[in-house]
Protein backbone atom coordinates (compact mmCIF):
# COMPACT_ATOMS: atom_id res chain seq x y z
CA UNK A 1 0.00 0.00 0.00
CA UNK A 2 2.93 2.32 0.66
CA UNK A 3 3.83 2.36 -3.03
CA UNK A 4 0.45 3.73 -4.01
CA UNK A 5 0.07 7.43 -4.38
CA UNK A 6 -2.90 7.98 -2.11
CA UNK A 7 -4.54 11.32 -1.36
CA UNK A 8 -4.77 12.43 2.26
CA UNK A 9 -7.68 10.82 4.06
CA UNK A 10 -8.62 14.33 5.18
CA UNK A 11 -9.21 15.56 1.63
CA UNK A 12 -12.94 15.89 0.92
CA UNK A 13 -14.75 16.46 -2.36
CA UNK A 14 -17.05 19.53 -2.25
CA UNK A 15 -20.24 17.46 -2.07
CA UNK A 16 -18.83 15.34 0.76
CA UNK A 17 -17.82 18.48 2.62
CA UNK A 18 -21.29 19.93 2.08
CA UNK A 19 -22.81 16.74 3.45
CA UNK A 20 -20.76 16.94 6.64
CA UNK A 21 -21.76 20.61 7.02
CA UNK A 22 -25.38 19.53 6.87
CA UNK A 23 -24.87 16.73 9.39
CA UNK A 24 -23.24 19.12 11.83
CA UNK A 25 -26.26 21.41 11.63
CA UNK A 26 -28.63 18.63 12.61
CA UNK A 27 -29.58 18.34 16.29
CA UNK A 28 -27.36 16.20 18.53
CA UNK A 29 -29.12 12.95 19.49
CA UNK A 30 -26.53 11.42 21.78
CA UNK A 31 -23.87 13.16 23.83
CA UNK A 32 -21.09 11.09 25.35
CA UNK A 33 -19.49 13.28 28.00
CA UNK A 34 -16.11 12.43 29.52
CA UNK A 35 -17.08 8.81 29.97
CA UNK A 36 -14.80 6.65 32.11
CA UNK A 37 -15.10 3.06 33.28
CA UNK A 38 -12.89 1.34 35.81
CA UNK A 39 -13.21 -2.36 36.62
CA UNK A 40 -11.82 -3.46 39.97
CA UNK A 41 -9.35 -6.29 39.32
CA UNK A 42 -7.19 -8.56 41.48
CA UNK A 43 -3.99 -6.79 40.36
CA UNK A 44 -5.41 -3.34 40.93
CA UNK A 45 -8.05 -1.46 39.01
CA UNK A 46 -8.33 -1.81 35.25
CA UNK A 47 -9.20 1.34 33.33
CA UNK A 48 -11.41 0.16 30.48
CA UNK A 49 -12.45 3.57 29.19
CA UNK A 50 -10.84 6.94 29.75
CA UNK A 51 -12.43 10.32 28.95
CA UNK A 52 -14.56 9.29 25.97
CA UNK A 53 -16.08 12.41 24.45
CA UNK A 54 -18.11 12.68 21.25
CA UNK A 55 -21.54 13.69 19.91
CA UNK A 56 -23.78 11.92 17.45
CA UNK A 57 -26.06 13.98 15.22
CA UNK A 58 -29.46 12.90 14.02
CA UNK A 59 -29.40 10.29 11.22
CA UNK A 60 -25.66 10.03 11.43
CA UNK A 61 -23.97 6.65 10.97
CA UNK A 62 -21.09 6.30 13.43
CA UNK A 63 -18.71 3.38 13.57
CA UNK A 64 -16.57 2.69 16.62
CA UNK A 65 -13.47 0.71 15.80
CA UNK A 66 -10.51 -0.55 17.80
CA UNK A 67 -8.34 -3.54 18.52
CA UNK A 68 -9.72 -6.17 20.87
CA UNK A 69 -9.62 -5.08 24.49
CA UNK A 70 -10.04 -1.39 23.71
CA UNK A 71 -13.39 -1.25 25.50
CA UNK A 72 -15.69 -1.06 22.45
CA UNK A 73 -18.18 -3.43 23.99
CA UNK A 74 -18.01 -1.72 27.38
CA UNK A 75 -18.74 1.57 25.65
CA UNK A 76 -21.80 0.31 23.79
CA UNK A 77 -23.10 -1.46 26.90
CA UNK A 78 -22.87 1.81 28.81
CA UNK A 79 -24.68 3.62 25.99
CA UNK A 80 -27.40 0.96 26.08
CA UNK A 81 -27.67 1.34 29.86
CA UNK A 82 -26.65 -2.27 30.51
CA UNK A 83 -23.53 -1.09 32.35
CA UNK A 84 -22.72 2.01 34.39
CA UNK A 85 -19.90 4.46 33.79
CA UNK A 86 -17.64 5.24 36.75
CA UNK A 87 -17.32 8.82 35.58
CA UNK A 88 -18.95 11.10 33.03
CA UNK A 89 -22.39 10.65 31.57
CA UNK A 90 -24.38 9.86 28.46
CA UNK A 91 -27.17 12.19 27.36
CA UNK A 92 -29.88 11.15 24.94
CA UNK A 93 -31.82 14.22 23.78
CA UNK A 94 -30.27 15.97 26.79
CA UNK A 95 -31.70 13.40 29.22
CA UNK A 96 -29.20 11.39 31.24
CA UNK A 97 -29.14 7.69 30.41
CA UNK A 98 -29.80 5.73 33.60
CA UNK A 99 -30.59 2.22 32.41
CA UNK A 100 -31.81 0.24 29.43
CA UNK A 101 -34.79 1.73 27.65
CA UNK A 102 -36.61 1.19 24.36
CA UNK A 103 -35.44 4.59 23.07
CA UNK A 104 -32.04 2.97 22.51
CA UNK A 105 -32.46 -0.17 20.44
CA UNK A 106 -29.65 -2.70 20.45
CA UNK A 107 -28.53 -5.45 18.10
CA UNK A 108 -26.11 -7.94 19.65
CA UNK A 109 -23.47 -10.10 18.01
CA UNK A 110 -25.12 -13.30 19.27
CA UNK A 111 -28.55 -13.12 17.72
CA UNK A 112 -30.51 -12.97 21.01
CA UNK A 113 -33.84 -13.68 19.34
CA UNK A 114 -36.30 -15.29 21.72
CA UNK A 115 -36.29 -18.92 20.59
CA UNK A 116 -39.80 -19.60 21.91
CA UNK A 117 -41.39 -16.85 19.82
CA UNK A 118 -42.05 -16.87 16.10
CA UNK A 119 -40.39 -14.18 13.97
CA UNK A 120 -43.55 -12.10 14.04
CA UNK A 121 -43.89 -12.36 17.81
CA UNK A 122 -40.21 -11.59 18.29
CA UNK A 123 -40.76 -8.31 16.47
CA UNK A 124 -43.97 -7.66 18.42
CA UNK A 125 -42.16 -8.20 21.72
CA UNK A 126 -40.87 -4.65 22.18
CA UNK A 127 -44.20 -3.09 21.25
CA UNK A 128 -46.03 -5.27 23.75
CA UNK A 129 -43.48 -4.49 26.46
CA UNK A 130 -44.12 -0.79 25.86
CA UNK A 131 -47.87 -1.37 26.35
CA UNK A 132 -49.04 -1.19 22.76
CA UNK A 133 -52.14 -3.18 21.84
CA UNK A 134 -51.89 -6.59 20.29
CA UNK A 135 -53.46 -5.54 16.99
CA UNK A 136 -51.22 -2.54 16.58
CA UNK A 137 -48.15 -4.63 17.43
CA UNK A 138 -49.08 -7.35 14.94
CA UNK A 139 -49.73 -4.82 12.21
CA UNK A 140 -46.42 -3.05 12.83
CA UNK A 141 -44.53 -6.36 13.01
CA UNK A 142 -45.79 -7.41 9.58
CA UNK A 143 -44.62 -4.11 8.12
CA UNK A 144 -41.15 -4.58 9.57
CA UNK A 145 -41.02 -8.18 8.38
CA UNK A 146 -41.77 -6.90 4.89
CA UNK A 147 -39.10 -4.23 5.20
CA UNK A 148 -36.41 -6.79 6.02
CA UNK A 149 -37.74 -9.12 3.32
CA UNK A 150 -38.81 -12.07 5.49
CA UNK A 151 -42.53 -12.17 4.71
CA UNK A 152 -42.39 -15.90 4.11
CA UNK A 153 -40.95 -16.53 7.57
CA UNK A 154 -43.41 -14.59 9.76
CA UNK A 155 -44.51 -17.75 11.54
CA UNK A 156 -41.16 -19.55 11.56
CA UNK A 157 -39.12 -19.98 14.72
CA UNK A 158 -35.64 -18.42 14.94
CA UNK A 159 -33.82 -21.78 14.77
CA UNK A 160 -35.24 -22.30 11.30
CA UNK A 161 -33.47 -19.16 9.99
CA UNK A 162 -29.91 -18.62 8.77
CA UNK A 163 -27.55 -16.30 10.64
CA UNK A 164 -28.09 -13.41 8.26
CA UNK A 165 -31.87 -13.76 8.45
CA UNK A 166 -31.75 -13.88 12.24
CA UNK A 167 -29.79 -10.65 12.32
CA UNK A 168 -32.33 -9.02 9.99
CA UNK A 169 -35.06 -10.00 12.46
CA UNK A 170 -32.98 -8.61 15.32
CA UNK A 171 -32.65 -5.30 13.47
CA UNK A 172 -36.39 -5.21 12.71
CA UNK A 173 -37.16 -6.07 16.35
CA UNK A 174 -35.01 -3.19 17.60
CA UNK A 175 -36.40 -0.73 15.05
CA UNK A 176 -40.06 -1.65 15.65
CA UNK A 177 -39.89 0.25 18.95
CA UNK A 178 -38.96 3.41 17.02
CA UNK A 179 -35.79 4.05 19.03
CA UNK A 180 -33.91 7.37 18.83
CA UNK A 181 -30.68 5.52 18.15
CA UNK A 182 -29.78 2.00 17.11
CA UNK A 183 -26.74 0.52 18.86
CA UNK A 184 -25.10 -2.38 17.05
CA UNK A 185 -22.40 -4.45 18.76
CA UNK A 186 -20.43 -6.25 16.01
CA UNK A 187 -23.72 -7.46 14.58
CA UNK A 188 -22.19 -9.16 11.53
CA UNK A 189 -19.14 -10.58 13.32
CA UNK A 190 -20.46 -14.15 13.30
CA UNK A 191 -21.49 -14.17 9.64
CA UNK A 192 -19.51 -15.52 6.69
CA UNK A 193 -17.90 -13.00 4.35
CA UNK A 194 -20.55 -13.15 1.67
CA UNK A 195 -23.55 -12.84 3.98
CA UNK A 196 -21.71 -10.10 5.81
CA UNK A 197 -21.35 -7.90 2.72
CA UNK A 198 -25.00 -8.53 1.84
CA UNK A 199 -26.00 -7.48 5.33
CA UNK A 200 -23.88 -4.33 5.09
CA UNK A 201 -25.66 -3.30 1.89
CA UNK A 202 -28.93 -4.18 3.56
CA UNK A 203 -28.21 -2.08 6.61
CA UNK A 204 -27.34 0.94 4.47
CA UNK A 205 -30.64 0.49 2.64
CA UNK A 206 -32.62 0.30 5.88
CA UNK A 207 -30.77 3.33 7.19
CA UNK A 208 -31.78 5.29 4.07
CA UNK A 209 -35.44 4.26 4.36
CA UNK A 210 -35.90 4.71 8.10
CA UNK A 211 -35.27 7.82 10.18
CA UNK A 212 -32.63 6.31 12.45
CA UNK A 213 -29.27 7.22 13.93
CA UNK A 214 -26.82 4.31 14.11
CA UNK A 215 -23.82 3.62 16.30
CA UNK A 216 -22.06 0.52 14.98
CA UNK A 217 -19.18 -1.32 16.62
CA UNK A 218 -16.81 -3.35 14.51
CA UNK A 219 -13.20 -4.44 14.27
CA UNK A 220 -13.36 -4.78 10.49
CA UNK A 221 -11.73 -1.76 8.80
CA UNK A 222 -13.49 -2.26 5.45
CA UNK A 223 -16.84 -2.49 7.18
CA UNK A 224 -16.23 0.72 9.11
CA UNK A 225 -15.18 2.73 6.05
CA UNK A 226 -17.97 1.29 3.93
CA UNK A 227 -20.75 2.08 6.41
CA UNK A 228 -19.80 5.13 8.45
CA UNK A 229 -20.09 8.88 8.18
CA UNK A 230 -17.58 9.21 10.97
CA UNK A 231 -15.36 6.60 12.58
CA UNK A 232 -14.41 6.81 16.25
CA UNK A 233 -11.04 5.08 16.60
CA UNK A 234 -10.36 3.73 20.07
CA UNK A 235 -6.90 2.93 21.39
CA UNK A 236 -6.05 0.40 24.08
CA UNK A 237 -4.75 0.58 27.67
CA UNK A 238 -6.78 2.43 28.63
CA UNK A 239 -9.54 2.65 26.04
CA UNK A 240 -9.45 6.21 24.77
CA UNK A 241 -10.36 8.06 21.59
CA UNK A 242 -7.38 8.24 19.24
CA UNK A 243 -9.09 10.11 16.48
CA UNK A 244 -12.51 10.72 14.98
CA UNK A 245 -12.30 10.37 11.21
CA UNK A 246 -14.75 11.86 8.74
CA UNK A 247 -15.01 9.33 5.93
CA UNK A 248 -14.48 11.13 2.65
CA UNK A 249 -15.99 8.36 0.51
CA UNK A 250 -19.11 9.85 -1.18
CA UNK A 251 -22.60 8.40 -0.68
CA UNK A 252 -24.50 6.41 -1.79
CA UNK A 253 -21.91 3.76 -1.07
CA UNK A 254 -21.44 0.58 -3.06
CA UNK A 255 -18.91 -2.26 -2.91
CA UNK A 256 -17.09 -0.91 -5.99
CA UNK A 257 -15.79 1.93 -3.84
CA UNK A 258 -13.59 -0.49 -1.86
CA UNK A 259 -10.71 0.25 -4.26
CA UNK A 260 -11.16 4.00 -4.71
CA UNK A 261 -8.29 6.22 -3.50
CA UNK A 262 -10.44 7.87 -0.77
CA UNK A 263 -11.47 4.49 0.56
CA UNK A 264 -7.93 3.14 0.61
CA UNK A 265 -6.56 6.34 2.14
CA UNK A 266 -9.08 6.18 5.00
CA UNK A 267 -8.43 2.51 5.51
CA UNK A 268 -4.67 3.10 5.56
CA UNK A 269 -5.09 5.76 8.24
CA UNK A 270 -7.21 3.37 10.33
CA UNK A 271 -4.59 0.70 9.93
CA UNK A 272 -1.84 3.03 11.15
CA UNK A 273 -3.93 3.93 14.20
CA UNK A 274 -4.96 0.44 15.16
CA UNK A 275 -1.84 -1.51 14.23
CA UNK A 276 1.07 0.90 14.66
CA UNK A 277 3.70 -0.23 12.10
CA UNK A 278 6.66 -0.60 14.49
CA UNK A 279 4.88 -3.26 16.53
CA UNK A 280 3.93 -5.35 13.57
CA UNK A 281 7.25 -6.12 11.87
CA UNK A 282 7.85 -9.76 11.07
CA UNK A 283 11.47 -9.79 12.28
CA UNK A 284 10.24 -9.33 15.84
CA UNK A 285 8.49 -12.67 15.85
CA UNK A 286 10.67 -15.55 16.97
CA UNK A 287 10.20 -18.40 14.53
CA UNK A 288 11.15 -22.01 14.86
CA UNK A 289 11.37 -24.19 11.82
CA UNK A 290 9.12 -27.20 12.31
CA UNK A 291 9.05 -28.67 8.82
CA UNK A 292 11.35 -30.92 6.91
CA UNK A 293 10.11 -29.67 3.56
CA UNK A 294 12.46 -27.64 1.40
CA UNK A 295 11.99 -23.97 0.62
CA UNK A 296 10.60 -24.73 -2.84
CA UNK A 297 7.14 -25.50 -1.36
CA UNK A 298 6.82 -21.93 -0.05
Amino acid sequence: MNNLNLPSYLEQEPDVRARFEKIRQRPVVLKVQHLGKIFPGTDGDIVALHDILFNIHRREFICVIGASGCGKSTLIRILAGLDYPTSGQVLLDNQEVKGPSPDRGMVFQGYTLFPWLTIKKNIMFGLKMTNHGNNYAAEQALQWIDLVGLSNFANAYPHELSGGMKQRVAIARALANRPRILLMDEPFGALDAQTRSQMQAYLLQIWRNVDITILFITHDLDEAVYLADRIVVLGTHPGHIQEIIEVSVPRPRNPDQFLTPQFLATKKRLEELIHPPEKNRQEDLPMIRLTQAGDEVI
Partner: peptide, 19 residues
Protein backbone atom coordinates in the same frame (compact mmCIF):
# COMPACT_ATOMS: atom_id res chain seq x y z
CA UNK B 1 -28.09 -11.74 26.70
CA UNK B 2 -31.76 -12.62 26.16
CA UNK B 3 -32.54 -10.68 29.32
CA UNK B 4 -30.41 -7.78 28.17
CA UNK B 5 -32.04 -7.77 24.75
CA UNK B 6 -35.46 -7.73 26.41
CA UNK B 7 -34.40 -4.81 28.60
CA UNK B 8 -33.33 -2.76 25.59
CA UNK B 9 -36.78 -3.53 24.15
CA UNK B 10 -38.47 -2.01 27.18
CA UNK B 11 -39.10 -4.99 29.47
CA UNK B 12 -39.11 -4.09 33.17
CA UNK B 13 -38.44 -6.55 36.06
CA UNK B 14 -41.90 -8.07 36.32
CA UNK B 15 -42.26 -8.40 32.56
CA UNK B 16 -38.75 -9.87 32.35
CA UNK B 17 -39.76 -12.68 34.68
CA UNK B 18 -43.03 -13.54 32.98
CA UNK B 19 -42.14 -12.83 29.35
Amino acid sequence: SLLEAAQTLGATSKKLIFH
